[in-house]
Design a protein around this nucleic acid. Structure first.
Lengths: 208, 208
DNA sequence: GCAATCGCCGAACAATCGTTCGGCAACTGT
DNA sequence: ACAGTTGCCGAACGATTGTTCGGCGATTGC
């Protein structure tokens, strides 16, 4: 009955409820390690175990192998990113429709700047997940869908877009992503405000 | 007199002319290996030696250590990229000023698609190079300067830009880079034409 | 109170990594 | 023709990697 491998995160054993505490502790330790040190190559079984204060062998009771650990970390971080962007969208002024787009993208930038290791990990692992109907579904498809919804609101509120709302969302998201990626492969001491300025410039290029 | 370490590429020994042949053969083998397999972690001393058909120890007569090899590969690839973009710019129709921008960015995309390993390597290594006067000088500063020159030509030719020419160049380059980065972290079977279409959409958003 | 179960760990395994050393073969200068 | 130099390689070293195995201590069920 054990060894019930969950296909989404390759969780193994431990399907009895409260025992997941150490599992999230492992993930937290991995994220912490990934933020302090540089990239994905810093994510080693021994390193995560040391950061979590447990033995390397103990990790294998929560993750089948290292690939499963990496998948778990990626999924964990995407959840955090989605939550941050959703929160920024909801806590913005409801009347300022384009301001809600800005809030979302600013949250995206702040998250990307604060979690450089997450980016290295994401850029290093190809995702080939697909919907049951065959349509592709990467982990940040819901993110750009959220941006697309914000742009749709702009359109309904009468804002003039230079692109269809879905294309506008892709344009803004891709541009922002490119700016952040360039930040991460460039100097670490660059001013974070520059990035937010770029995002504003990009949005104002699309929206009016 | 040996061990004359060249600071730009950390070349070591072998300053007698023709002996550089094997050095470029090593770099070619590294690029080949980097293109076939995935990312920067595939770039091992033993792997490069095997791909070049030589012994692992022989590499140390052309590069001081692995870091020097990586620096050499990165520099080598940036030179190839610059050459490809310059060639695309020069061989385009001289009268079609915005067409020359498109040609440059399309060349950038084609190079990035054809050399995925180069991207992984670039995104994984922070560059902190600076000019003698203290201004930062990343390896792709000349690239965006080339795009900026093309946009300046557009401005002089009477094309209406929605941004100052230097900001327009940054916008187009960053957006293109983001699209390519997303391609590399997404499905490998994505149609390359999609990316070129996106670049055209981005340019037409800036130029008119 | 006893036996079974379960999470955890210390230790070891094989593989691979970057790197060094000593010697071999070929070329050079005289 | 000989001695010296030089590029290259086979073999090894130490470190680190992912992973497995056997047992220990605590908790659970009866």
């Amino acid at each position: 009955m054990p060894d019930e491998t969950d296909l989404t995160t390759q969780r193994v054993r431990n399907p009895w409820g409260q025992g997941d505490r150490l599992r999230t502790e492992i993930l937290d330790a991995a994220v912490r390690l990934l933020s302090e040190l540089g990239g994905a190559e810093a994510l080693t079984i021994r390193g995560v175990a040391r950061a979590a204060g447990i033995a390397p062998a103990s990790i294998y009771q929560h993750f089948a192998d290292k690939a499963a650990l990496v998948r778990g970390v990626v999924e964990y971080d995407y959840e955090r990113l989605s939550a941050v962007m959703r929160e920024a969208d909801e806590s913005a002024d409801t009347d300022d429709v384009v301001g809600r787009v800005r809030a979302q993208m600013h949250a995206y930038c702040r998250f990307a700047i604060a979690n450089p290791g997450h980016y290295r990990l994401m850029l290093g692992n190809r995702r080939v997940a697909r919907e049951p109907d065959g349509r592709p579904r990467g982990p940040l498809v819901p993110v750009v869908e959220s941006v697309a919804a914000a742009f749709e609101r702009c359109e309904r509120a009468g804002a003039r877009l230079r692109l269809p709302s879905d294309r506008a969302a892709v344009m803004v998201f891709v541009g922002t992503h490119g700016r952040v990626a360039l930040f991460h492969s460039g100097r670490a001491d660059e001013d974070a405000d520059r990035i937010l300025q770029f995002v504003d410039e990009l949005i104002s290029l699309v929206v009016e």
